[in-house]
Simulated scan of single mutants.
Amino acid sequence: MSYQTIELTTAAGVVTLTLNRPQRLNSCNAAMHAELRDALRGIESDAAVRCLLITGRGRAFCAGQDLDARDIAPGEHAPDLGASLEQHYNPLIRTLRSLQMPVVCAVNGVAAGAGANLALACDIVLAGRSASFIQAFCKLGLVPDSGGTWHLPRLIGHARAMGLALLGERLPAEQAEQWGMIWKCVDDAQLMQEAQSLAQHLAAQPTRGLALTKQALNATWHNSLATQLDLERDLQRQAGRTDDYREGVAAFMAKREPRFLGH
């Protein structure tokens, strides 16, 4: 499929997905959502893909929803925003969280509203030093969505999450790193090089083991210690039966670098 609002490139087991509406700060519309769904279905079904890297074209990562699609003329009924979430944003966030491979995000500029929470749904987030995160919903009389009310308190605590959500203030990338909201803030000129290097490293690791690790960490917020210990047991049983585990042990014993195949 030929895409108009996103770009896909593949190299060495890494798919780089670039949001490509720079003239609209990569804000989301129905066409972009449709292309994202199609692209992620292909990525999920391709055994050769072992890491996904998401970034944006131009001076923004993603400005959230394209409000041109939300323009309400006088006398018109307001759109059902809940239906929009159910159809577009919620499936996107669920897919990213459950994808059976690492998902790296390179935030190259402003990440606002759903764009900020799209980034936070990824596994490892890098941001350029000039990047920023804005929970812009309060400025429109809306509620943070796309997982924002779930991720923010868990990443930075209740007080900071409440401040960002109620005030809608810009959070610079350096402060986001200091608060533990993202993995790392890097110089703008080095962002894509570092993100691609990280993605290539992850793509060469035991993909099934990394996917099981994601599953365990995503479940921990809901589980008691006893339940989490049982889950670790069950996931470790699966990991121990992989070819990559055998290769990891063999490489350790032979004092050589492992050659993981991702299964």
Rank of each mutant, 00 (worst) to 15 (best):
T55Q: 14
Y3G: 10
T5V: 04
Y3L: 04
F61C: 03
L96E: 04
G113C: 13
D145F: 15
E35W: 05
I156N: 05
V186W: 11
K139Q: 12
R70V: 01
E44P: 02
M192P: 00
A127T: 10
L52N: 07
Q135P: 00
L225D: 15
K139H: 15
M101Y: 01
L202I: 09
V249E: 11
C105G: 02
Q200D: 06
P172R: 08
Q23H: 12
L166D: 05
W179E: 15
G58M: 09
E35K: 07
M181F: 00
L17D: 10
K139W: 13
S132I: 03
A106G: 08
W183F: 14
T16P: 05
P102T: 02
A111Y: 04
R59F: 11
Q215F: 01
A189C: 06
L202V: 05
Q236S: 15
D80I: 01
F61M: 03
E174C: 14
G240W: 03
V49K: 09
Q236I: 08
N218V: 04
A161C: 12
G209L: 14
P206C: 02
D71T: 13
D123T: 09
N90T: 09
G240M: 04
P153Q: 12
G163Q: 15
L140D: 11
A34W: 03
I124L: 13
D46V: 00
P258Y: 05
L96P: 04
T18G: 00
T213L: 12
L191E: 06
Q193G: 07
K255T: 12
A131T: 06
Q4M: 00
I6S: 12
G148F: 00
S98W: 02
V143E: 15
A34R: 03
L225C: 05
I43N: 11
T16K: 04
A239R: 08
A116F: 14
H222F: 08
A69H: 09
A211N: 06
Y3S: 03
A195M: 07
L155W: 04
R37N: 05
S132Y: 10
H33S: 01
E44H: 02
R160W: 04
D80E: 13
E194W: 02
E169A: 11
D234K: 04
V103M: 02
R170W: 09
L225S: 13
L8F: 02
A112Q: 05
E76T: 08
A254K: 09
G113S: 15
W183M: 06
R154S: 00
M192A: 10
P172W: 01
C28W: 10
Y3P: 01
A60G: 08
G209E: 12
R24Q: 14
A69K: 05
K214W: 00
A189S: 14
G64R: 02
Q228T: 07
A254I: 01
W221P: 12
G248P: 00
L52A: 11
L17I: 08
G157V: 12
E177M: 12
E35T: 04
S130D: 14
A127M: 14
M1G: 07
A226Y: 10
R41V: 05
T149P: 00
A165P: 03
L99E: 07
L210D: 04
